[in-house]
Design a binder for these strands. Structure first.
Lengths: 332, 332
DNA sequence: CTGAAAGCGCTAACAA
DNA sequence: TTGTTAGCGCTTTCAG
């Protein structure tokens, strides 16, 4: 069923039908006729054909590294909340942590198919930047800051600093970190920087052997805790983890080894995801506002789509420290 | 840049360009010319215009109740894995547990925009069924069974039965349940049925006061545990929860009250999500194969799209019992 | 193997 | 207000 056929059934012209589904500008009679015809036929206009003419798709592409991670899904939920209210739908690409797929997807979105792209960023290569520069649709990056682009990001360095400082203040003497790749400027580099800044402030040596680089997962946290605590020499007495998931995995290992949290080892994570409340020793962490980040990113992309904002902006959302038992220690 | 303009730059006809991006029926020379022109111009064909002609969008709609739930995101991940390999993209609708939005989205997808729809189902009303019947594109339902439609679902009743039976076998005498609305035939009704079947088998009375109906969340689990344990009369000594999240919330309450798990109260959940491993007393649960469900649903929709299968099928995936500490009890 | 031309379903400018 | 008409950018016969 197409518009011509339908317009005949409704007894009006094609334009009338088009107007019905668009601006309005229509008499009540025609409107009623069309409505009746819709009841009968179930007609709905083809979005593809409309897009050819109008050049708008009402689609926004969302590229993310791992859909089943709580942070990504909460950001995406925020994005969707705003965009769906404006009649946009999300088209999703899960790159499964494969940077090549990020590039591919950007290329795919480059000229058509979507009105804008939101990229939940991880690692940016030169290739990324060059592809991003060539985009013909607005782009917003979430979770990272990249000069020359619209970004919504967290205060990663500040959160890591505050958490580490807290552990040191509570009496920890020998801090270790399980971070992620510093190629990830936010979750990797910035959080490491924050950790180091606190160490520096407390004049604590930063033993290189006490630095692990993990993947974004519980299992990886477990493995790296094992590695960390299997080394010769004095054991760490506090552990800063780049994410709650890593922290939860590390805690699983500590428990296995009969090491008490926080008495023997303090632990903290970042994110304040669901797991933090539930670990056997409730996890101190920094709440990052994932959903809000999604909402703000959606607002930015909307504004770019509508007004073609040429001036780029970076929005940083702050964290809240959530202190639970995993970093508390009675001062002796 | 459109195909006409581009074909001039490439020095070939529009048809040649179209063939390049489709079947290929093209000489090497022309192919090379086109490739060179692409390098220069960055031309890519408009998907919308293609869809108008071919009537395929290479898009599959996914409707789900809550993106940020681990089960939904894992199912979606499975769907994406299969579909993206076949060149399809996902268009996502997060209904935020609003059944009206399910209907709206189905209507939107009814005639166009997507080649197929995968619905992560919750509660089905008559309206749902009538809208589903009118769909002009293939539909697959995940997580529920609905006669007359393609479904991929779990063995909810069996899992609930096996878990409850386990607790009873381990010596529990006074079982309680925190379920979800029985309008949800899978997570609500079937799991309650399984629970009751086990009680029946062990000749345990099913005190109506020991049945709570919660939402799908940790907080709700907490609240309903509180309600359950605040009642007069003997307290339950084992607690079957419809989901891991509910169980984790309930456990938080028990801990607050100084009730030990499993010594005072056994607890189990369903799903085997990340949280189950991390609760202060590791949670016994039934692993449901979410990602596999997504993969199978994607295969089904692909098959329907391609061969227009008219005969409907229901695929049930079985569970695995994962016994952790929360249901263990030394027999006295 | 190639190009001309018709037409997919829709929107929007224009004339009425 | 309304209908006619000329495209939007592409695919796909069809004749060469």
């Amino acid at each position: 069923m197409n518009i011509s056929e339908f317009s005949k059934i409704a007894g009006v012209s094609k334009s009338a039908v088009s107007r019905y589904f668009n601006d309005g500008y229509l008499s009540e009679e025609k409107r009623a006729q069309i409505e009746k015809a819709i009841q009968i036929t179930g007609y709905a206009p083809s979005i593809a054909a409309r897009s050819v003419k109008t050049r708008v798709t009402k689609l926004v592409g969302v590229i993310l590294p791992k859909l089943s991670s709580e942070s990504c899904s909460r950001i995406t939920e925020g994005i969707d909340e705003v965009l769906e209210a404006e009649g946009y739908k999300l088209i999703l690409v899960n790159t499964a942590n494969n940077p090549l797929k990020e590039i591919e997807s950007l290329e795919l979105f480059r000229q058509n198919r979507v009105d804008g792209v939101i990229l939940l960023g991880t690692v940016f290569t030169e290739l990324h930047k060059s592809v991003l520069k060539k985009m013909h649709v607005p782009v917003v990056i979430v979770g990272q800051r990249l000069k020359g682009f619209n970004c919504v990001c967290h205060n990663d360095e500040g959160a890591a600093y505050a958490l580490t400082r807290q552990m040191l203040k509570n009496g920890a003497k020998r801090p270790a970190i399980i971070g992620v790749t510093p190629e990830d400027k936010a979750a990797g580099k910035a959080r490491l920087d924050g950790f180091l800044r606190a160490l520096n402030e407390f004049h604590v040596a930063t033993g290189g052997k006490l630095t692990e680089i993990a993947q974004f997962s519980m299992d990886s946290g477990y493995d790296h805790a094992k590695h960390l605590f299997s080394q010769a020499g004095p054991k760490p007495d506090c552990l800063f983890c780049a994410t709650d998931d890593i922290a939860s995995g590390a805690m699983l290992y500590l428990r296995e080894q009969g090491l008490r949290v926080p008495e023997d080892v303090m632990v903290c994570g970042i994110g304040d995801t669901k797991i933090a409340k539930n670990t056997y020793c409730p996890l101190t962490t920094a709440r990052l506002h994932y959903k809000t980040a999604g909402i703000e990113a959606a607002n930015m992309i909307l504004s770019s789509i509508r007004h073609g904002d040429k001036i780029q902006r970076t929005l940083q959302l702050d964290y809240d420290i959530v202190e639970r038992e995993s970093t508390k220690r009675e001062t002796v």
